[in-house]
Design a protein around this nucleic acid. Structure first.
Length: 176
DNA sequence: GAATAGATCCGC
DNA sequence: CGGATCTATTCA
């Protein structure tokens, strides 16, 4: 994907990422579950209280990788969206690959860690590839996001998208 | 400085 | 359901 793909509104990018392939070196898989985190009004977004050392990549222009450590153990991969200065990103929650059905598991399986934080997806070994048509809306399920109950009213925003009937959806998706 | 809690996962 | 494991962020 070229830069302009990522510079569009985050919800559009999130939906269009479904069905694309995430590639990192010799491993790849079809993206089947994502979540959008958009701007300072989104209380579940890491950048809701402004720029910090951790979330500064979210302020880059679209097309960069924001990777952070969660629970001291797992890394989570986000794809930064929209123009420089506006903090927004799409969390990749699952791809269709063995042991990649969850945000922590997919980073572990692909070997992504915080040292890859800030990578430019338009010119590195980490990128998104288009191999098939955009997934039609009737094959996409849209729900509130997972694990953000702490964020009050923002917890109800239906900013989670997944390919219906994919056998690789994250574990918590199936439960909730 | 110290405390807190987190965009998760696994095993019991 | 609770522990792992750690650090950015927050609070005093």
């Amino acid at each position: 994907m070229t830069r302009d793909f990522y510079l569009r509104p985050t919800l559009i990018v999130a939906k269009n990422l479904l069905g694309k392939y995430l590639v990192f070196h010799d491993k790849s898989g079809r993206i089947c579950e994502v979540e959008a985190y958009i701007g300072q009004d989104d209380l579940a977004c890491h950048a809701t209280r402004g720029k910090t050392k951790r979330n500064e990549v979210m302020f880059y222009c679209g097309g960069h990788a924001y990777i952070y450590l969660i629970y001291g153990i797992y890394n989570c991969l986000n794809i930064v969206t929209e123009k420089e200065g506006f903090p927004a990103a799409v969390l990749i929650r699952a791809i269709e690959l063995k042991n990649a059905n969850g945000p922590g598991k997919l980073c572990r399986t692909l070997g992504l860690t915080r040292q890859h934080n800030g990578l430019d997806l338009t010119k590195s070994e980490l990128y998104i590839e288009d191999r098939e048509k955009i997934i039609s809306t009737n094959k996409i399920i849209q729900t509130p996001r997972i694990g953000v109950d702490y964020s009050g009213e923002s917890a109800q925003l239906p900013w989670r998208f997944a390919i219906k009937d994919s056998p690789y959806l994250s574990q918590r998706m199936k439960n909730g």
